[in-house]
Design a binder for these strands. Structure first.
Length: 261
DNA sequence: AGCCAGGAAGTCC
DNA sequence: GGACTTCATGGC
């Protein structure tokens, strides 16, 4: 398709923001992305983007994936001008978007993410795709059900291997589809509670799954970075209510700023 | 070299 | 319900 203009979007920032672990840099400001069974090469020059797919596929898959339906300018305008830290964070990561990713992939990736670092998470996910994915795609529940806890441990997951083995076992054979229906019907707190019943899923991972996989815009996953920010800059209490409707985006600005700066 | 990582489970009280 | 410990291992 012909190049298009998109505001408030920066591929490198998104790639480095720790929400997706499978983007591959294939050149300067150029990435190859796989999602929902499709593959896309995206290239950016300023606000001009070229995508390798056709118009129809872009509208059907990628426009949603990049969250193009959200007005990020409006989110930024709501930021309290007196909040210097958040203003700096939003300016620094002004091209971040909260990707609308596949639920199952998000569940697996963030199960592995706990007490882990981003580059190591990427390696583990890459290994899972290589060993269990058809054609190196992201493995579905039934694909992973063939692996044991020890298999996953040896792939570099460490102690998280047993969590993934339990998840794959529980989600194979239609278990994931069943859970999906439950989650889609639940409100935010119900979805969080349901996810927290899974072995190895606590509040933070559940909130990441809700935000990145279920697109619950008001989830605000509190990891080690966010906790440090709130302790150091907000006296232990962030003004959540002020940003109702966009807490997930705000959280990403804060996270990315603390991660990269 | 040693601390840290997009934390959670287990085990106390 | 909270504090404390343990869990694998690569990154930097």
């Amino acid at each position: 398709m012909k190049p298009i203009t998109i505001e408030h979007m920066d591929l490198k920032q998104i790639a480095d923001s720790g929400q997706s672990f499978r983007w591959k840099e294939s050149g300067d400001n150029r990435y190859t992305i796989e999602a929902f069974g499709k593959s896309l090469t995206a290239e950016q020059r300023g606000q001009q983007f070229s995508f390798s797919c056709g118009e129809a596929e872009f509208q059907e898959v990628w426009s949603n994936y990049f969250d193009l339906g959200r007005d990020y300018g409006a989110v930024k305008e709501r930021i309290d001008p007196a909040d210097e830290y958040l203003c700096s964070a939003a300016a620094y990561g002004s091209g971040i978007r909260v990707l609308r990713q596949d639920l199952w992939e998000v569940m697996v990736c963030f199960l592995i993410s706990q007490n882990n670092n981003i580059s190591r998470i990427k390696n583990s996910i890459g290994g899972l795709c290589q060993v269990y994915g058809k054609n190196q795609s992201f493995p579905r529940p039934d694909d992973l059900a063939g692996g044991s806890a020890q298999d996953f441990e040896r792939l570099g997951l460490g102690y998280r291997g047993k969590y993934l083995a339990a998840l794959a076992e529980q989600m194979s054979g239609g278990g994931f589809e069943e859970l999906s229906w439950t989650l889609l019907a639940a409100d935010d707190e119900g979805a969080r509670a349901e996810l927290m019943t899974l072995y190895g899923v606590g509040r933070k991972v559940a909130d990441c799954i809700c935000l990145f996989g279920l697109h619950r815009d008001d989830m605000f996953p509190a990891d080690t970075h966010i906790n440090q920010i709130i302790a150091a800059h907000y006296g232990g209490d962030f003004p959540y209510k002020r940003y109702a409707g966009s807490l997930g985006v705000i959280q990403q600005y804060l996270f990315y700023y603390h991660l990269k700066k």
